[in-house]
Write a protein that binds this DNA or RNA. Structure first.
Lengths: 85, 85
DNA sequence: TGAGGTTACGCCTATCGTAATAATG
DNA sequence: CATTATTACGATAGGCGTAACCTCA
C-alpha cells in the first residue's frame, strides 16, 4: 500500500465517483479503477458498493476513509511552510 | 512521496545506517540510498549528516522522523486485526 | 582491508493513457 | 444516447539488484 492508493480512494469517496475523481486528479478513469481494485484486494474487502449507478462506501469503506484521511493529514508541518504532499 | 520513502527513512534512522536498514528490509543498500536521496530532494533538505562514518539525523531529519512515525502508525485498525502495512 | 555509502547501468514490474465493452438512467 | 466503471493492451517510468568506486576506521 502506498499513499497513492489513499489519495485516489479519498478522491473517489469525497467526489462520489471514479470519473469525477479522475478529472480532479487529472488521471484516467482506468488508473483510478485499477488502484482501487488493488487496494480492495490488499485489504481483502470491498470499499465501494457498485450495485447502483452511483457508488457508495461500504462499511469497511467508511472506516478506511477515516484512516486514510488521518494518514494524509498527519504531518501538520509545524517546521515547514508547505505541505509534504 | 510514498509510504515506501517513510518506511526506508524510519528504518535508517532507527538502525543508525543504510546498510543495517537494507539488511532488515531485505533490499539492497543502493535501493535505500536512492530512495533517501529522492526524499531529501523532494523535501529540499538533508535528513542525515554524512560527515562522519556513522550517519546522524539532521535537525530536519529529527522533525521529519516524528512525522514519518506518526503517519506509519496512524491507523490503529480498531476494525481490523492485522495492520494495513 | 573490510565495512558503509554512492553512482552507473540494465532488468523488470507497475502504473498510466487509449480504446473498446458493458451497464445504467 | 450520454455517462460511468471495467478490461485489454502497449508504452513509459521508476524501483531494484549487481557491480564498481571512494572513503574511512
Amino acid at each position: 500500500m502506498e499513499l497513492r492508493h489513499l489519495r485516489y480512494f479519498k478522491a473517489v469517496a469525497e467526489n462520489g465517483g471514479f470519473a469525477r475523481a479522475a478529472r480532479i486528479l487529472r488521471v484516467a478513469q482506468s488508473a483510478i479503477s485499477g488502484q482501487i481494485h488493488d487496494l480492495e484486494e490488499e485489504l481483502g474487502a470491498s470499499l465501494f458498493d457498485r450495485a447502483k449507478r452511483q457508488i457508495r462506501l461500504t462499511y469497511h469503506g467508511e472506516l478506511f476513509l477515516k484512516d486514510a484521511k488521518t494518514v494524509l493529514a498527519s504531518p501538520d508541518c509545524a517546521h515547514s511552510a508547505e505541505r509534504y504532499w
